[in-house]
Computed example of a mutant assay.
Amino acid sequence: MEKKQLAGMAIDRIEKVFGKHNGYRRAHARGVIYEAVFTATGNAAHLQAGETRAAVRFSHSSPNPVWTDAMSPVKGMAVQFQLPGGRLTNIVGVNAPVFFAKTPETFTEMLGLAKSLKNGRLPLRTLVKLLVKYPDSRAAIKVLRKMHAPASFVKGRYYAMHAFYFIDHKGNRTPVKYEWEPDAGVAALSPKDAKAMEFGHFEQELESRLKKGPAGFRLNIIIGEPGDPTDDPTKEWPKERRKIVAGHLEIRGSQLQDNGILFDPTAMVPGIACSEDRILAFRSLAYSISHARRTEGT
């Protein structure tokens, strides 16, 4: 099947399973965007030393905007860097280190099983079927099943999940992954506390927090080594991999209008390239289709 056609099928299936919500993203439907400033160390190829304006969107993973906060234990943090000359590049992360599908075909097929979600989680019987049918997804599904929501949007560690390449002036490629580490520390909610939260708690807590002062994240670049998979987002790299600090993100109290902003994870600038990860390329196509439907009000 042609790649764009498969991406369209995935978006259609999301709408069928979770409902069609005009004007919303087809995944991570509910969220808020704030202005930010990123101060780079100069260690990253595409982020030179100095300050860069940015937009940050925190979100709940559900495609249904009326799901409660607790029903979306996976939270998102998407950052768009507004570089000189009108260039843009994005880092799209979630508070889970892995994705649940290795290929676009598997992802699209697994969407058909999403009807069995109960309170944002898969029943044990469905989980067993998934583990048998999709062995490559076993580790990721187990991680996601045990996911707990962070205590706040700014108390989660966010992973871009996919591998990228930094390219030097000689054309040498270094595999890397991105990780956002919160200044406030990492803290998770218990299932009991999450269930007791009112709808919109995360947004209200963030708004209240930012009125008192900025919140921040450190951007870590994880350096891959030979043998680390660059084409499989269901697999983590060893935790002992070297990290460098690329800079610091300061989120300020001014909330921004969405205005159709597109956080395409493959938006590249010189010095960085996508890996062989098929899900990464697929996300770009799916985001484009979702963006078109959302901005057209459909």
Rank of each mutant, 00 (worst) to 15 (best):
D183G: 03
G23K: 09
G224N: 07
G76I: 08
V79A: 11
V79K: 03
K243I: 13
I91H: 00
T230W: 03
P84R: 00
A70G: 08
H201F: 15
N64P: 10
Y159C: 01
L249M: 08
S62R: 03
I289C: 05
M71W: 13
G85F: 15
G271L: 03
M9Q: 14
P229S: 08
M161E: 07
D69A: 06
E296M: 08
T52K: 11
E236K: 11
A196T: 04
E207D: 11
G23S: 07
P73M: 12
A44F: 07
P175K: 07
R283F: 11
Q48R: 11
N172C: 08
V92F: 01
I11F: 00
R26Q: 14
I91Y: 00
T39C: 10
E225K: 15
R125E: 10
V17A: 09
L131Y: 07
T106P: 00
N172P: 03
G8C: 06
G85W: 15
Y34F: 13
N220Q: 13
A139V: 13
K129N: 09
A45K: 10
S288I: 10
L210E: 02
K170R: 12
Y287V: 02
L117T: 04
G185F: 06
F100D: 05
V74Q: 11
P135F: 15
E109V: 06
M1K: 09
L285S: 01
R30T: 09
G31P: 01
R293G: 09
L144M: 15
F217R: 02
R252Y: 10
F282I: 15
V92S: 04
Y134S: 10
E181T: 08
T52N: 05
F217N: 01
F217A: 02
A196R: 13
I11T: 01
R278S: 12
P226W: 13
L189H: 04
L285G: 00
G156T: 02
R121I: 02
G19L: 12
H60V: 06
M9F: 07
F153A: 10
D264G: 10
I33H: 00
P238F: 01
K239C: 04
T103Y: 01
A78E: 03
T41Y: 09
D136N: 12
A40V: 07
P104F: 03
E276G: 13
F217T: 05
R25K: 12
Y287S: 02
A10H: 04
E276D: 15
P214W: 01
S254F: 10
I167V: 15
Y287K: 00
T295F: 05
R278V: 07
R209F: 07
K212M: 13
P229R: 08
L206N: 01
F217Q: 02
Q204V: 00
L249W: 03
P238N: 04
A267H: 02
F99Q: 03
G171M: 06
H162S: 13
N172E: 12
